[in-house]
């Protein structure tokens, strides 16, 4: 057991109860949806809808990954609680994206089955322990943060760019927490993402 373990457990344990409420997720969804609607009014394009749909696909996959991790029986209680919180954030992102895409006249991409996501992520061969679950989640969160950063210049208006930055910040927050729980030191170099 390393020196960080009690602190990591403490953090996961205390944030669990405070952040699991559906109301908190609802607030996140409501804010995002409102901002998306503003984006729509300012000349959102088909390209914007396409990017949001790619983002929705990414959120579907993240939700499934946390479901697979939570259902694996590999996660200890405080880690499981954190996984459920993070999954709740992704569900909030998903709901806001679906509403925005629909409001903008697009058709939201549907989720695949958890089994399809598990196969694509090669879970059976690579996830055998709690550490493996955390490493997979950490990798997906960093990829998601960078994806949201990377699409910012492609959006047609500043409202959508700002929302993308907010979504990236959520994923970066998840990545930082997971990295801490894994006992990894913070990166030495600045500009960690992008």
């Amino acid at each position: 057991m390393d020196q960080f373990t009690p602190t990591r457990r403490s953090i996961l344990g205390t944030t669990g109860g405070a952040m699991l409420s559906a109301a908190a997720i609802g607030v996140l969804g409501g804010v995002s949806t409102s901002a998306f609607a503003q984006g729509k009014k300012k000349s959102a394009s088909q390209g914007d809808v396409d990017i949001l749909n790619v983002a929705l696909g990414l959120e579907h996959e993240a939700i499934a990954a946390y479901s697979i991790g939570a259902g694996s029986g590999l996660l200890a209680k405080p880690v499981l609680d954190a996984a459920v919180i993070f999954q709740g954030h992704h569900k909030g992102h998903r709901d806001a994206l679906i509403k925005a895409i629909t409001d903008m006249g697009g058709k939201p991409v549907a989720a695949k089955t958890d089994a399809e996501y598990a196969a694509a992520l090669n879970v059976a061969a690579t996830v055998k322990s709690q550490n493996d679950v955390l490493k997979l989640a950490q990798k997906l969160e960093k990829g998601a943060a960078n994806a949201y950063i990377g699409v910012i210049p492609s959006f047609s208006n500043n409202d959508l760019r700002q929302i993308s930055a907010r979504l990236a910040a959520d994923e970066a927050s998840h990545w930082a927490t997971l990295s801490f729980v894994l006992g990894e030191a913070p990166p030495a170099a600045p500009l960690i993402f992008g």
């Binding site: 790619v54 990414l58 694509a120 997906l140 943060a145 990377g150």
Partner: peptide, 17 residues
């Protein structure tokens, strides 16, 4: 690739990309 592409892509599986 690991940092920027694997949010949506893998070498051997179709995912978001």
């Amino acid at each position: 690739y690991e940092d920027n592409c694997t949010g949506c892509h893998s070498l051997d599986a179709n995912r978001v990309g």
